[in-house]
Amino acid sequence: MWTYFIGRLAISVPTLFFVTIIVFGLQHLLPGDPALALAGEDRSPEAIEAIRKQYKLDQPIPVQYVYWITGVLQGDLGESIRTKKAVTDLILEKLPVTVELALLSMVLALVIGIPFGVISAVRKGSGLDYTTSVVGLAGLSIPNFWLGIMMILLFSVELGWLPASGYVSPWESLRGNLAAMIMPAFVLSNAITAVMMRHTRSAMLSVMRSDYVRTARAKGLDERVVILKHSLRNALIPVVTVGALQLGVLLSGAVLTEQVFTIPGFGKLIVDAVFNRDYAVVQGVVLFTASAYIALNLCADMAYFLINPRMRG
């Protein structure tokens, strides 16, 4: 097992190295000079020259890469040229927000998606099945930012139930935190809920056609037991796989939703950084996300290894 683990770990190293080169290279292909972006309206040639010098932008790109990667290897991701804050601090500040938003959306998607998927499978062809399908399709097709603004107008402006936007830390007020997060989490979960629902439905349908379910029914088991205990459990396996994939997507940032609800998370951080050509921030965030993906994959592989006896040699 350890040789397997170490082998996997060893493969991650060149992957990460490759990621750093891609991130660094692609970014420098962007048109638009970061010095010019930083100088903004005060763009006298001297000011731009001074910025180039200060951030070593006047050096050849490979040299800049060496400066950066040397820092990264020492745990220093550099600092934002816009705010002079350490990139590591920015990431640590935003990460909990995005993780919370992602987990809340996932919970909502599961709580809404799975029961409705089950119901529409059980009542296949009924009015209820068609209704959930239509609602699900709508959920998939409605753009997040539009739904977000509509919800703000309804729940904040008209009804006054929820704050229109912003973020409250759970340490400050748990209630305030949930009130601020519920709308963005719902908007974000919207499409995933639909996906979960459709997957649950089709998995349930195929499971319910299988022999052992027929046997269970033949034994005279209560229909509820057949559905919840015998069918759903097995149907959930593909659903969980899809859910795990979606969680990965959620963690890499929900750009539009964060923008509409002014949630200071990863998505907003990276978008602002790209538009301001804040290289260090973009590089840091992408590198961090890539590392997280790789680490999660590694964990998943390990878990699979533990669960599946056939893989153990």
């Binding site: 603004i149 402006v157 006054g160 704050p163 229109a164 936007s165 002014t262």
Partner: peptide, 14 residues
């Protein structure tokens, strides 16, 4: 950033 959301925050008292 969004002007509609900024105004909504004023309208809802935040």
């Amino acid at each position: 950033i969004d002007t509609t959301v900024r105004l909504a925050n004023l309208q809802s008292g935040q």
